[in-house]
Amino acid sequence: MGDIIVLAISCIFVNNILLAQFLGNCPFLGTSKKMETAVGMAMAVVFVMVMAGLITWLVDNYILTRLGLEYLQTIAFILVIASLVQFVEMFLKKSIPALYAGLGIFLPLITTNCAVMGTCLINIKEEYSFVQTLVSSFSYAVGFGFALILFAGVRERIVLGRVPKPLQDTSIGLVTAGLIALAFMGFKGMV
């Protein structure tokens, strides 16, 4: 049990997927201008990342490794993620329209979110067990959402300030992200 908690904390804070591993930066900068979109994206990512993590683990361990087809990992994973996203989208549209409307365009965008694919690859690379995969996928996703929402909060404030013209928009966004990453470095050595 202790191991699981340590793993969760390390995935959320110490190895934060956005700020320490640099995965999923496109949606990080793209959807963080408003709090609403940031929350929508964070929720969609938690949802898809956990499912994708578990399914790719099963695919890798029970199909690819058994058949000696590890070199097809990249193709297999991206297909699993793409079809999963499509499936989740159709399912939500039919059965939970409110949630579907809430997530909106963020669902299809997740296919090209490298945080999802990255988490799946890390799970396999670290040779996690099924339970560890579940915990790490969920924790990485929570870490992603946490950083995204934090950043969106800061960014909403920046809009109000007077930023020099060449630094505006993405440029100041990146510098701010750097400062947040600096704060997250404080978690190093915790686990």
Binding site: K165, L167, L174
Partner: peptide, 19 residues
């Protein structure tokens, strides 16, 4: 060469490009 440096360096380079 640490993580935060990457963000800051890229942000400042974007700023230079905008100039």
């Amino acid at each position: 060469v640490e993580a935060p440096g990457a963000f800051v360096a890229l942000g400042l380079m974007l700023c230079l490009m905008n100039l």
